[in-house]
Amino acid sequence: MKLVIENLNGERSGQPIFSSLNFSLEEGQALVVTGSNGSGKSTLLRVIAGLLNASDGSVLLIDSGQDEGVSPPHEYMHYLGHQNALKLALSVEENLNFWQEFCGIPLIGISEALVKVGLPGIEHLPAAYLSAGQKRRVSIAKLLVSYKPIWVVDEPTSALDKASEVLFAKLIEEHLSSGGMVIAATHQSLGIDSDNNEQIKTLNLDKNRLSSKEQLVD
């Protein structure tokens, strides 16, 4: 499986945010999108996840041995946005159960996933009682309970402390080594050693903006 982004252009209320993005991700590879505030990290991720229409270009998911893209690619994605997509009135278990059933392809059990994000034995508590970091980790556990090959995560480590960041980096590495892909927008490091790892690509949207301006000047 291969995710191919071709000549992708994104805009927000008519303003071009990024242009002519080309890259591809193989199984086990991750893309870290960096850039200053307002550089369009979230917009890019939402375009990739099919939540926003691209003004030009395409996002294709190509199955191995086939030339045609699987459509639509966002069905193979987990999207973790700024919000946690948790219902505060429901218990942690009810929340995760719902997402597991709704997203399909159950991978590991709820309690196992909660152990992996460092929240063992929290199933019965209403989500409203959790701290911001705990809610974030429960919504990370959402990625674990059902299997999707591509994780699209927007500032996943915001509200997380150092220990939880390390935990999350480990989960990403596990996902990559099992053949998954990760696209992460972040202005902190993900905690993965990206310099020495050729499986981790980096995309700086500030540079993209500069380069497109230069193209305009030329």
């Binding site: 063992p120 929290i122 009682y129 701290s131 705990q134 402390d161 150092k162 220990a163 939880s164 390390v166």
Partner: peptide, 14 residues
């Protein structure tokens, strides 16, 4: 109980 889980995991993490 929710708070305690946090302090426990923090002490384990350190």
């Amino acid at each position: 109980a929710a708070r305690r889980i946090d302090t426990q995991s923090a002490s384990q993490g350190n």
